[in-house]
């Protein structure tokens, strides 16, 4: 029964794949035109950054990135709501500890570099945040129960920092009369850098905290209530 069902599904998926291959070919033929690339490059000087991908992520389609940071936050909130974290691994031996003291600073340094370089070359907040998150994972694997993260009350502020700075910049530009997330000329580069810095910290903290898992207020945070 199960294998017969699998066979039917397999046949269906195979047909779907063949059909889609043909459709992709057709779509490529229709869309041989320029798409949005020309416009994206033409607008580049006004964005204050010279890496076109960063320009799309933080200027042209900054609103998408804002919501995407909110998705990351929502995942962490969901993880926190599921209950207490399981205990960390036992402390590692001397060799691993030695490696950790070497690798973690390197990861943080590389993260900072990627954040800065994102303005004009491949790199940016997500790559940098991923490295910071990886540093947290490495520390947790080496036995640090909190993955190198600050106390839980501070974590809460760090994980919202990315979305918060982003949306506050949006509301501020709106207050200045330019429209939501419409950076004023000349400020663009620095606003993007500020948003990216906050986003890097938030992404790194969120990824490490998600790896730790668990509920952060079970101990000290809300001890007065419940």
């Amino acid at each position: 029964m199960k294998s017969a069902g699998g066979l039917v599904i397999g046949a269906f998926v195979l047909l779907l794949a063949i059909w889609l291959l043909w459709v992709v070919q057709t779509a490529i033929d229709i869309g041989a035109g320029p798409r949005l690339a020309e416009q994206a490059f033409a607008g580049l000087p006004a964005t204050g950054v010279s890496n076109p991908v960063t320009a799309v992520l933080l200027s042209y389609r900054g609103y998408d990135t804002l919501l995407e940071l909110a998705v990351l936050l929502a995942a962490l909130l969901g993880i926190w709501s599921l209950g207490a974290a399981s205990p960390g691994f036992q402390a590692a031996g001397a060799v691993l500890q030695g490696m950790v003291t070497l690798v973690v600073p390197l990861l943080i340094l590389a993260g900072g570099y990627l954040l800065w370089v994102g303005g004009h070359a491949p790199g940016g907040a997500f790559q940098a945040g991923a490295l910071l998150g990886a540093a947290g994972v490495v520390m947790r694997l080496a036995g640090d129960e909190r993955a190198g993260l600050p106390p839980l009350a501070a974590q809460r502020w760090l994980v919202v920092a990315g979305v918060a700075v982003f949306v506050l910049v949006g509301i501020a530009t709106m207050g200045l009369g330019a429209g939501f997330l419409a950076y004023p000329i000349g400020w663009s580069k620095w606003l993007i850098l500020a948003i990216e810095t906050a986003a890097t910290v938030a992404i790194g903290t969120t990824l490490a905290a998600a790896y730790v898992g668990g509920r952060p207020w079970s101990h000290a945070d809300v001890s007065g209530q419940s």
Partner: peptide, 14 residues
């Protein structure tokens, strides 16, 4: 074209 590149980055994080 940088637009699909940015879409993919967003998609990966999601």
């Amino acid at each position: 074209d940088p637009v699909p590149h940015a879409l993919v980055l967003t998609g990966i994080v999601v």
